[in-house]
Design a protein around this nucleic acid. Sequence first.
RNA 1: GGAGAGGUGGCAGAGUGGUUGAAUGCGCUUGACUCGAAAUCAAGUUUAGGGUAACACCUAACGGGGGUUCGAAUCCCCCCCUCUCCGCCA
Length: 430
Amino acid sequence: MIDLKQLRENPQAFSDRLRRRGADFDLDRILELDAQQRQLEQQRSQLQARSNEIGALVGKKIKSGVAATDPEIQALKAEANDLKQQLSDLEPQERQLKEELERLLLTIPNPPSETTPIGRDETENVEVRRWGEEYKPSQPCQPHWDIATQLGLWDVERSVKVAQSRFVTLLGMGAALERALIQFMLDTHRDRGYVEVLPPLLVNSASLTGTGQLPKFAEESFRCADDDLWLIPTAEVPVTNLYRDEILAADQLPIYHCAYTPCFRREAGSYGKDTRGLIRLHQFNKVELVKFVHPETSAAEHEALVADAEFILQALKLPYRVIELCTGDLGFGAMKCYDLEVWLPAAGCYREISSCSNFGDFQARRAKIRFKGAKQKGTQFVHTLNGSGLAVGRTMAAILENYQQPDGTVRVPAVLQPYLKCSHIGGAKS
RNA sequence: GGAGAGGUGGCAGAGUGGUUGAAUGCGCUUGACUCGAAAUCAAGUUUAGGGUAACACCUAACGGGGGUUCGAAUCCCCCCCUCUCCGCCA
């Protein structure tokens, strides 16, 4: 959620920054509602002050022995009743204004950071760096779904029977590889200072609103309508909301969490895209990194978060590049975002495998996650950051393609061999 | 699913119509005493909105919403949540 006070004080700067996203937002309406609301509030609180005064006065008089039927008391009661009448007029008006204001505020995205490159769409994203040598085999490289089928790592047809298209069942070494990846990622992040959490996979609407998926992106999540519960689209939601409505002590920051969860996405509007393989599914596994930090450190924490995600790719020796998203491609709640894209040799291109965002105080404001120094007067919003560390299914796809051998087997990355207890998948060696 | 209990400040826990944003204890902060610490004493210690140069000050909030009343943490209605027991269940 944007800061209404900032908007009020400098609407032009605000809308300029927001416009970099490539769309216009009706900030005037918000300012108008805000002004009206505040005016009403002022009126209302004056009336209420007088009403409180009368209440206290009547109480005092009755206590000191004045009869309730005394004309003086009758007059005060009459005045209070009159005030009540006026208040019952004002209150619903103000509430309505507040609700509309809140509704509008929740639909405004986060203004991009000053450092975010300005651009229209993904074609204007900026490559920051590359790591590793792209694997370009002389003979045509098989796509990971063919490798997975040949090696018996998954079953697509039966998954459709059990659920629907875009669900996948991993089998045998396929399942084991996925599990090994999850464990490797979690172990690594834990060693690097993240506290592991295993959160609920169903969350309530308040949580989805806190992180920004609601109200605008309701159609992208699976919903259990009878219970006001939703399947999580990412661990970001339950983990960030762990601290919703809390005031943390300043010395509790920074908080680093890592979490493995399945993620559920309806992928509405993506029909026909990536229909084969492990790239785009309704359910996939992800290890997520989430940070809660002091605002002054968030830029540095963001870079460190990206490095932590990169570390996994480096450990797996998977070539990748780091892309900084331009303002036009930035997610709703992010003010700055780096994507990690892994090299997929079959397609000969890089594909997103991690997205590391700095949300500034945008989510904290929605979810009311604040902190307070020991001697500090007011509260401040924390900054939240998160990133995939990594998307597990896509990592498996990248391994299958980058590590396939001429004999049809897939070599197991060295760091995973202790987990899988073998050096190759498929053939006699597995 | 059935029965019961309960939701008050960082925590514990009073408060059943009157200046109670809320006793008391613990915790925390500051100060005094001390060479220092403990103990003791004193003061302070919720959040949000408005307001102010900054204070002052005003308003709201005792799970949420509505009602009764001049006045509600306290009375009435609806909803939500938590806990305990029983049933079912990994």
